[in-house]
Each structure stands twice: as structure tokens, then as C-alpha cells.
């Protein structure tokens, strides 16, 4: 049952990504040129309501459907990994105009060459795993 719910959430998320145009290279390119409010509006509204929802969970101790307390694991404190990793990610995001979610959404939409991006992302993830102990975090 839970799996069906998760599948539906994924489907709805994919439709949102497509219809919001957040999965389009053109919108990402436009965003980095500061020529439209579109992407900033999407992220601003998402984070605004996101903060509200997270605060609701915390204030009212809302439990998950399993009856467990909802905990959002804090990220470890660091600067280097977030800044350097973030910059590397940003370079790729702007180059192909897709972040991990939209990569999958665009494969579903039928853009076969996005599979090359997907394979690249898998290799990149693997390289990180191999080099992890040698990288500053």
C-alpha cells in the first residue's frame, strides 16, 4: 500500500517538475541570467511553504503515519564540502540544465540523450565514493 502511495507521489512530482518548467534547460539558463522571476518564484514559494510545514511538524509534534516522530536529520557541520561540492554541482546543473530529479523526469518525457547525463551522474557519484577519504570535508 505504502509503495503505491510512494509511486503516486513520484508521478505527481514528475508532473509538477514538467509542468512547472523547472525541468527545462531554458528556464535554468534564464535563471542564471537573472532574466525572469520564474525559477526564483518556484524556489521561494517552495521554501516558504516548506518552512511553514516543517514548523507545523515541530510545533505540534506531528507523527508520521507509522506513529514515529518525524525527525529531519541535521547535516554535519562543515563549510568546504558544501561550498566546493555545491559549486561543482552548480557547474553541471547549468551545463545540462537539469538537476537529479529532472534528469529522471526528462528521461520519462522521452529525451533519450538525457540517458547520457544519467550515466555521467552515476559515474560521478561512483568517483566521489572512491575518492571520498582523500577529499577535504
Amino acid at each position: 500500500m505504502k509503495r503505491i502511495v510512494l509511486l503516486i507521489i513520484g508521478i505527481v512530482f514528475g508532473i509538477i517538475m514538467y509542468k512547472s518548467e523547472a525541468a527545462s534547460w531554458f528556464r535554468i539558463y534564464e535563471m542564471f541570467r537573472f532574466e525572469s522571476i520564474h525559477m526564483y518564484g518556484i524556489m521561494g514559494v517552495a521554501v516558504g511553504f516548506g518552512i511553514l510545514f516543517v514548523q507545523l511538524i515541530k510545533r505540534f509534534n506531528i507523527k508520521s503515519v507509522d506513529g514515529e516522530p518525524i525527525k529531519i536529520a541535521p547535516k554535519e557541520k562543515s563549510f568546504t564540502r558544501y561550498m566546493v561540492g555545491g559549486i561543482i554541482f552548480g557547474l553541471g546543473w547549468a551545463l545540462v540544465g537539469a538537476c537529479p530529479g529532472p534528469i529522471f523526469v526528462m528521461i520519462g518525457a522521452g529525451f533519450v540523450p538525457m540517458l547520457i547525463v544519467f550515466i555521467g551522474a552515476l559515474i560521478g557519484t561512483y568517483i566521489y565514493g572512491v575518492l571520498r577519504d582523500k577529499l577535504p570535508h
Binding site: 561543482i88 553541471g92 560521478g124 557519484t125 568517483i127
Partner: peptide, 11 residues
């Protein structure tokens, strides 16, 4: 893709 995969895990 490489930059995305590497960067996202690093970050």
C-alpha cells in the same frame, strides 16, 4: 552528468 553526480554527493 559527471559534475552533477560528483558534486551532489560531495555536497
Amino acid at each position: 552528468g559527471l559534475l552533477i553526480g560528483f558534486g551532489t554527493r560531495y555536497a
